[in-house]
């Protein structure tokens, strides 16, 4: 099977320079995470260039979410180093939080507040100027301008994901960490997210996208990596790999995708 693998692949984004040919926006070295006696990550080396979209595939329990949580500074690694935009995550948490945006599996919204109140709260916590205007802008972008006066607990799952996306848009991050971002999105909202990823990429935003959805991941990503049992078992640019070879890899590695 013709599928490339490298433990630490560097992005090849034009115009970027660095020790390995790119300026990494995200870099992990020998990253290890143990939860008690269970290893979640067993030495992950990744380097993602500025403006690159990396799709992280892998079965449940492969370590995708753990990797994203470590990059976000929510979980401390057992060993190894993590840098986001050149900032050491463990030592400069506040600096890292200023440049990242996270779309997590849980929507991180308060059920008792309205959609607009959730975003106004986020804007205050982010210290944004013109908060009300910015909130109105992003609500319009995600198509929730009228529904925003309702409490989040009355929202459908798709509306909650849209609102979470609006919250991400408020941040204007340099690095986005997206965990299953297409889950529960209808076609229109999925299209909106795709467009947002493309616009963000054009603006130089780096994205790490953990997903089970091979098709969507393949559509939006510049590069694909597969995590299995806490290790990167595959890492290649989109132009180097066909969907079929990736699918073969998934079958080779067993239980990965169920219905995919």
């Amino acid at each position: 099977m013709d599928v490339p693998y490298s433990g630490c692949r560097m992005a090849r984004v034009d115009g970027l320079t660095g020790p390995f040919g790119c300026t990494p926006a995200v870099e992990t070295r020998a990253l290890v995470k143990w939860y008690g006696a269970h290893p979640a990550l067993r030495g992950v080396d990744l380097c993602v260039g500025r403006g690159e979209i990396l799709a992280l595939f892998g079965p449940n329990g492969a370590g995708k979410s753990t990797l994203l949580r470590i990059l976000a500074g929510l979980v401390r690694p057992t060993a190894g180093s993590v840098q986001v935009t050149g900032l050491e995550v463990g030592k400069n948490g506040d600096g890292v939080r200023r440049v990242i945006g996270v779309l997590a599996h849980g929507h991180q919204l308060y059920d008792t507040l309205t959609g607009r109140e959730n975003l106004l709260f986020a804007a205050t916590m982010l210290g944004l100027d013109r908060a009300a205007e910015r909130v109105a802008e992003v609500l319009t972008k995600v198509g929730l301008e009228t529904a925003a006066e309702g409490r989040v607990k009355t929202f459908s799952s798709g509306m909650k994901r849209r609102l979470a996306l609006a919250k991400l848009m408020l941040r204007e991050p340099k690095v986005m960490l997206l965990d299953e971002p297409f889950t529960n999105l209808d076609l229109q909202a999925a299209k909106l997210l795709e467009e947002f990823l493309v616009t963000s990429k054009a603006a130089g935003v780096t994205t790490l996208l953990a997903t089970h959805d091979l098709t969507l991941g393949f559509t939006v990503a510049d590069r694909m990596a597969v995590l299995q049992q806490g290790r990167v078992v595959f890492d290649a640019g989109r132009d180097e790999v066909s969907r079929e070879s990736l699918r073969s890899l998934f079958s080779l590695h067993g239980e990965l995708w169920g219905g995919e």
Binding site: A72, G73, L74, A104, H105, H107, Q108, Y110, M125, L126
Partner: peptide, 10 residues
């Protein structure tokens, strides 16, 4: 809803 994570990410 993982709001604690959200709060810590600000």
């Amino acid at each position: 809803n993982d709001c604690l994570d959200g709060l810590l990410l600000y």
